[in-house]
Design a protein around this nucleic acid. Structure first.
Lengths: 214, 214
DNA sequence: ATAAAAAAGGGTGTATTTCCCCTTGTCATA
DNA sequence: TATGACAAGGGGAAATACACCCTTTTTTAT
């Protein structure tokens, strides 16, 4: 006799999570035992109920308060055996890689069909993973692309964020309590790393790479 | 005896639409009779089946091929009596206003609770509209805010797009076949209209207002 | 312990951007 | 036919941004 698999949904879109619950409950052998609106609520629940038995967590990536990435990092640290499938509308490489490398056993887009979705949750519970073509191809292509990965230092990152404003470099220097000359150095360093030539390039890079939100 | 209200869902996120269907079917007197993955599919269906009876359309705003806004514009032209509730994760003023002014009878965020959702679909069918606090406040605030609406001229717009690059003003002038001094004029004019002081401000404005896509 | 990076700061010079005030021609319209 | 609004262009100065080459101190790695 099979046991029913217990599933938790973490997603801020209530309409989605509550509807998805109905879908999952309509599958054989699956049951949504709980759902939360963001990572923080979910983690709080795990901490307050250490004996919770869960077979699978469906984790939204974009959430307020505590997002999917932070949540899966916490899970990796504290409950590494928990099966997690990331759910997102977001198919950009960086996000997918980050979720997978932090332990997600699958990454499904929300435009997945219910049938594929069912296959995925069965696969993760039985085999431990489920990767779509999209995810597999990204993981393969990453091999060469991350060798030339750009690493920004903490101060450079702070400067970069401030550069995405109408402040002058002098004002940024004041705000960071540094000499304008030091700021000059950060700028030069970023120009070289990012292969750009102007402050406009900095702004475009920061926005493209979600370093600033406008 | 009440008749069952017929609902159509238009949303590219299959997992969402198929799950939402279960939720709606669980309400009394409501039934999802059809669903489509984008506006084009939906419009095609309406054209091929002119006698379709629908009491309410749940229309996603962000979809590939033909998005919610284009779809509701078509509906306004061709089937103005159709009740539409816009569904979106997007709560920015501009989108909400555009959907409402093009005939949406309601605008719900996807993090709405199933209970509010049910209230909304009942209200739209019975009273013809349902506006949340969010939507009402935006509609009210718009009254004064759009009197000072910013109008950019065609050339200014072209310049603004080119300014969102690492080109110098001289290079932009060349590209537009104008004197750098004329470009200077466009810049000054934009600085004043947009209440900004630097080229960074131009870039931020252009991106915020979706004048350029990066 | 010591060499090698990295972080912070500096000097000088050029290029670009920003600012303010001006001229000319066009076109609509009162 | 003035008149005013607007597009295009301009001069010149000041501020800001960019480039290059340098010193000192602190970290990091071997």
């Amino acid at each position: 006799m099979k046991t029913t698999n217990k599933i938790i949904i973490v997603d801020d879109h209530l309409l989605f999570s509550q509807s998805l619950k109905l879908l999952i409950n309509s599958f054989n052998d699956f049951e949504v035992v709980n759902s939360f609106e963001n990572g923080k609520e979910f983690i709080n629940h795990l901490q307050e109920n250490p004996d919770t038995i869960v077979d699978l967590v469906l984790l939204d990536v974009n959430m307020p308060i505590l997002d999917g990435l932070s949540t899966i990092k916490w899970i990796k640290e504290n409950q590494p055996k928990l099966n997690v499938i990331a759910l997102s509308v977001n198919n950009d490489d960086e996000t997918i890689i980050k979720m997978i490398t932090n332990g997600a056993k699958g990454y499904l887009l929300k435009d997945t069909s219910p049938k594929i979705f069912q296959e995925a949750i069965i696969a993760v519970i039985e085999k431990g993973y489920y990767f779509t073509e999209l995810v597999s191809s990204i993981l393969i292509n990453r091999i060469d692309s991350d060798s030339k990965k750009i690493i920004l230092k903490e101060k450079e990152l702070i400067f970069l964020k401030l550069a995405c404003s109408e402040k002058t470099y002098k004002e940024i220097a004041d705000e960071m309590c540094l000499s304008p000359k030091t700021i000059d150095g950060y700028r030069e360093s970023l120009f070289e790393k990012l292969e750009i030539k102007t402050r406009i390039g900095l702004v475009l890079y920061a926005i493209k790479n979600k370093i600033v939100f406008i």
